[in-house]
Amino acid sequence: MQTRASLRVGDQPWVKWSLISLALFIVGTLLIVPLVAIFVQAFGDGVQGFLANITDTYTLHAISLTLLVAALTIPLNLVFGVFLAWLVTRFEFPGRKLLITLIDIPFAVSPVVAGLLYLLLYGSNGWLGSWLMDHDVQLMFSWPGILMVTVFVTCPFVARELIPLMQQQGKEEEEAGVTLGASGWQLFRRVTLPNIQWALIYGVVLTNARAMGEFGAVSVVSGNIRGETNTLPLHVELLYQDYNAVGAFTSASLLAGIALITLFVKSFVEWRQARQRRVLDEVSE
């Protein structure tokens, strides 16, 4: 049955191999080499130098501030994301479509603009800022401000992961649960959560990666106070400006390490999700 017309691009070995080597070359020069370079630079002064840079007071503080912000951002966005996804997939109400679109605002807006918006609102010349100033509340240029913009920038991740999945799964199982007399909490714990858990983890992984790596929005509201409002990405820039290239790359290697771990966790979760989907398909057949 095979005719010459069905021969596709890539069936000829030379096309295939030149495409593969081109792809490898691009991946190598654009991704792998810079990644390796980060670690080579970080260990430029040997392991001792690396450790000395990591244990620097300001670096330690930057690490803990970054972890603190991520640790607070994740639960906030987790609750918000689940609530939102549940709302738009389980209920019909006017403006539902609009709400789904609005969730994406933080993706559409440049992080720097997001930072400036918060500054204009909560800065001492802002609408709310002058009131806060009179009541001696400092949000901008301190860690709560950093947390606020990070939550803003990362808030779509969880909801975006959940909405398509929950739409696909439908509400039959939950309705079955209700008829069997499950309370709201039982329903969530026993029916909804197990169905969405891998998508949820996926969303959390993405939120975490972005929360730790965010530069633009945070840099606007940080005030760059060393040992107080300097997050890890800002710390990298600051060290680089100080001509401390090894220190900068040491901090950068931490961020790169987080990114790599994120990637592995992400692939694992994707694999689990795919498996769950297969199981679901088999059951429905």
Binding site: T57, L60, H61, S64, L65, L67, L68, A71, G227
Partner: peptide, 13 residues
Amino acid sequence: SVALALAIGLSSS
């Protein structure tokens, strides 16, 4: 454990 690590990190500075 995360909270503990954070507390140590923040207090050290």
